[in-house]
Design a protein around this nucleic acid. Structure first.
Lengths: 209, 209
DNA sequence: GTCTATAGGCCGATAGAC
DNA sequence: GTCTATCGGCCTATAGAC
């Protein structure tokens, strides 16, 4: 766990602090840590700079609160996806894959925050992110793959973690690349995540051969 | 083209300027634009702050020089990969895929720079990046897929650009995720890009079924 | 809890000597 | 081309009134 002496969960924060947290989230999601000033957050939250330092002991502490919140929201969104699955392991996999992409796209702020954290601080905080954010969901998908494998619906030669990784990866890359994808000729799937999901899943299922 | 009144190609730069450029590249690759100060670049290049402003008209101009250089190096590395291919379209695809991952991993500085540029400025500069960096290489791979499709080696239902995208994406995500991947249990492919390449290509070829 | 005012530091960029 | 010295500005963070 990250250690912070102040409250970090939304439920423990006062109303004023929540406004600050939300303003900070949208700004930290849009721009790098250093590119966001406390003044800017203050004016977005319609309060004063000093008041931010009253609620959060430093700029970094505020950032960490924002990040933890985003991680929690992200994890719980994925748990929700995980809880609404059918019985057929293959269908489960398909549903999870589509749901994951939807979750990513419907909370672009959290996604961007985590993505940047991975890019800038991955080498230091990779372990933390692995354990607190990705581990459970990833393990669940790996388990799904293994179940399907046991029932003969996925061939034995497949490495479950590799398939799981590629499924997550396909979604993440879609999110990351949209801004450039839409300017490439002959790319038709940018505007339709559902089509993308089902086309990728079909490709992974049957291969291109 | 980005317009810059100063020289931006390495060959046009003096020795002093090159030292600055290299120092700047390693720092800009490691940290965000705002997190790198001219003072820091100066001390890494063993020169003075003022001298940097003598060679580059602003911090941003220096950053753009660094970025353009990285893009050019990245493009030419991929062209090299593209030029060493066999006749069989499918083998070509496989070779390109493996070569692309190798190229990414062997120039992590350029890769990180471009990745960050996409993350931070993708919405504005997505078109520029698409046209100047990704377009040609992407088109080449799409063409490879179509050739293989014409020869019946890839089934007709496959969208060539989708397959090409997933191949690039699989490599990019591998690069991005290594710092967290290596902390996930049951993931064995992190340390071996070659294994990863061939396993993914096999998965894409035959599917998991 | 919220404010104004300000401390103290580092920033990008410039002037001008050599 | 390279340097030292310096400017004006914005930054995080704090002091202290209300």
């Amino acid at each position: 766990m990250i250690k912070t002496d102040k409250h970090t969960h939304r439920s423990e924060l006062s109303r004023g602090a929540l406004l600050i947290l939300d303003a900070a989230e949208s700004l930290f999601a849009a721009k790098d840590f250093d590119a966001v000033s406390i003044n800017e957050i203050a004016s977005h939250a319609q309060t004063s700079k000093a008041n931010i330092f009253h609620h959060f002991k430093s700029k970094e502490a505020l950032y960490i609160s924002v990040l933890k919140n985003a991680c929690e929201r992200s994890v719980s969104a994925l748990n929700e996806v995980n809880s609404q699955l059918s019985d057929d392991p293959l269908k489960q996999l398909n549903q999870f894959f589509a749901g994951h992409l939807q979750a990513i796209l419907s909370s672009p702020l959290s996604t961007r925050l985590i993505q940047r954290e991975l890019l800038e601080n991955g080498e230091q905080k990779g372990k933390l992110l692995a354990e607190e954010v990705f581990s459970d969901t990833f393990a669940n998908v790996v388990r799904l793959v293994k179940q399907a494998q046991d029932k003969g619906m996925i061939r034995q030669g497949i490495d479950p973690s590799l398939l799981a990784f590629l499924m997550f990866g396909a979604n993440v890359v879609f999110f990351e690349s949209r801004s450039v994808l839409k300017h490439l000729p002959d790319v038709n799937f940018t505007e339709s995540p559902e089509e993308y999901s089902s086309a990728i899943f079909d490709l992974l299922t049957h291969g291109f051969k």
